[in-house]
């Protein structure tokens, strides 16, 4: 799980072009949207593509996404249980 969280942090930084931020700057339970990293709706779509492309998880229910994308911790937990890749 720790390795997955580190991998996720690196991927989030890369796909969302988070300049001047390193994996060490992102706390496992830090809020990703709004405050925290301040991600927006386009970033949310990018994370949906990331889940599909890298882990084979298709998210069709936006309400679920709100919970899954709360933090790196919640993303990693969902991926662990549902990944097909």
């Amino acid at each position: 799980m720790t390795a997955l969280k580190e991998e996720l942090k690196r991927q989030i930084i890369e796909v969302l072009n988070l300049e001047d931020i390193t994996p060490a700057d992102i706390q496992d339970e830090e809020v990703l949207f709004g405050e925290g990293l301040g991600l927006d709706s386009i970033d949310a779509l990018e994370l949906i593509v990331l889940m599909d492309k890298t882990y084979g998880i298709k998210l069709s229910d936006p309400k679920k996404g709100r919970d899954i994308f709360q933090s790196v911790e919640t993303m990693a937990a969902y991926i662990s249980e549902n990944r097909t890749k």
Binding site: V15, L16, N17, I42, D43, L45, E46, V49, D52, K53
Partner: peptide, 9 residues
């Protein structure tokens, strides 16, 4: 087939 939302906008 993985269109990038951040590119599309």
């Amino acid at each position: 087939y993985y269109p990038r939302p951040a590119t599309f906008v």
